[in-house]
Amino acid sequence: MSGERLLTIKNLSVTFGGLHALKDLNFHVDEGEIVSVIGPNGAGKTTFFNMISGMVTPTAGDIIFRGESLLGLDPNQVTARGIARTFQNVRLFANMTILENVMVAQHCRTKQGLWGSLFNTASFKKEEEEIREWGEHVLGFFGSRLIGYRLEQPASVLSYANRRRLEIARSMATKPTVILLDEPVAGMNPKETEELTGLIGKLRSEWGFTIVMIEHDMKVVRDVSDRVVVLDHGETIAQGSYEEVSTNPEVIEAYLGRPAEEAS
């Protein structure tokens, strides 16, 4: 199922003050894969995403995306290369409408500047139309939840689950190759979780996205991932298929036996 090598993480480390948030992470993602990153709270998972997306600079190591290093790039350049992300603590543009949230995410894929905006040129109108269409298209991924009358509502009126969905839609709108999902089902009820698990699968099968996902819900991890990486205190303690890591004694210890219980 896996194709071309997309992302290679080499000896990636970062320290905050004296704290080694991440130590010597080695890791790769191939095109079309769904890879999960798991680990107890504070293991360094979100920090890892922050480094890929250019928001945190690693102290050592390298991140290679399609043969080129991402080090030193600004977050917007990383997004432009095709890596989009969601945030663990949902960070939407709360006072912009739902449609605007997905429209603004296409910024790096569009180019109309002052001239087009001021003179309402034909190419400006065409681009606006395309932005709008693509925005509605990605929102449609979640059925009727985010479209219709919702389009013009501010993101702040959405329910928690719908905010998470909009975050995913916004990352899809940037037309990425890889999507980094930071705890996509956190705070959702079992029903919603099940539905979203299905959708994550579709992100790959129907939309062709490659996915790296941080998740605490082991059922979701088991259902969607091709491979799992386990972090603890910034160190990689296991990599492999879900079955392999879930039976790994070190992982069980890190989780105080939780995954073993759930897997059974």
Binding site: P75, R85, R91, F93, V104, H107, S117, L118, F124, E128
Partner: peptide, 30 residues
């Protein structure tokens, strides 16, 4: 100028920056 820019790609980028600058940057806005 204000009216045109406000509802254009540029205006949306400005609004996103006003709302949350780091997220705006992570969403591909320079």
């Amino acid at each position: 100028v204000s009216w045109r820019l406000e509802k254009s790609r540029i205006g949306r980028a400005w609004m996103a920056i006003r709302e949350d600058e780091s997220v705006a940057e992570a969403m591909g806005i320079n």
